[in-house]
């Protein structure tokens, strides 16, 4: 505890050094910088994270051969794997888009599930190098007595399509 008036009465004594709390100041500065980076990311990436399949070539920002993110539902029986890649068809609002992905999609990628593909249009095919699976807000219990193996896939598909 420092009370500065004492040194004023002591001739020759060094003036008191006021202790600054540097750590909180540094944290405040770091928070401001971090906030700035996040706001920048928000403005450049977070607003309208993707284009829907039916908006390609129609909506501003979703046209041409520019890099974009496209959202749609993986069409049933459209997934084909081979030559180190995966092809499938995305479906949204009765519009379809063929996607060629260079690898094996991760997450819970499967038929009838909404995904976001990152890439660009090349000769009518969307060449993708990143797939993100967009899970719906529906949570359905895996219940052996209710959904048997033969219709599980179809049930999951109907659930996901709503």
């Amino acid at each position: 505890m420092d009370l500065t008036p004492r040194t004023a009465t002591e001739p020759g004594a060094q003036p008191p050094v006021r202790k600054r709390r540097w750590l909180p100041i540094l944290i405040v500065v770091a928070a401001l910088l971090g906030g700035g980076v996040i706001v920048t990311q928000f403005l450049t990436s977070a607003i309208d994270y993707y284009c829907n399949v039916d908006e390609i070539g129609v909506r501003p920002g979703c046209e041409g051969e520019r890099r974009m993110r496209v959202q749609g539902v993986v069409e049933q029986s459209s997934i084909k794997q081979g030559d180190g890649g995966t092809t499938f068809v995305l479906d949204f609002n009765k519009k379809t888009l063929k996607v060629a992905y260079s690898g094996d999609p991760g997450g819970v990628f499967q038929e009838c599930i909404p995904v976001i593909a990152h890439g660009r249009m090349v000769n009518g095919v969307f060449e993708s190098d990143r797939i993100e699976v967009k899970h719906s807000n529906q949570y359905v219990e895996k219940n052996a007595t209710r959904i048997d193996e033969s219709n599980k896939e179809a049930a999951a598909c109907s659930v996901l399509k709503g």
């Binding site: 928000f42 990436s45 977070a46 994270y49 991760g106 819970v108 993100e132 967009k134 899970h135």
Partner: peptide, 13 residues
């Protein structure tokens, strides 16, 4: 689930 730890989408950002 998604296949990625982080994306700069509206909720995460």
């Amino acid at each position: 689930t998604w296949g990625t730890y982080w994306v700069w989408d509206a909720r995460l950002t």
